[in-house]
Amino acid sequence: MAQARELMKGSTDSLLLYLLSQQPMYGYQIIKELERKSQGYFRFKEGTLYPALHRLEKSGLLLGKWQLLPGGRQRRYYHITDKGRYILLEKKHQWQDFLVAMNLVLQPTNT
């Protein structure tokens, strides 16, 4: 699990940008969605999601907007920006190159 957490450190931004490129979401929803999509593989301390979201927002990759719910409660929905979509595309390419290279090393018989 600790190794998975280490691997996840470098990929949090890509995961968040990808999820939010599908639809705007709020923090709790992101955690549930990440767990569901990865079949429980991606789990982290929930509080640490917010620093990552705020960092991406400060970098202009996300935009947070408060939305008032019936009953007076508020949720902060995160929207991906154009810059965020561009960076996501770059990160996707980097991941694909990385996976190809890993496969070449770890499964040399396939090549």
């Binding site: 301390k45 929930e46 640490t48 917010y50 620093p51 705020h54 400060k58």
Partner: peptide, 13 residues
């Protein structure tokens, strides 16, 4: 998770 860690990371953001 740790409140101090969350606060420190948000501060840095």
């Amino acid at each position: 998770g740790s409140a101090k860690l969350v606060a420190r990371q948000i501060y840095e953001a």
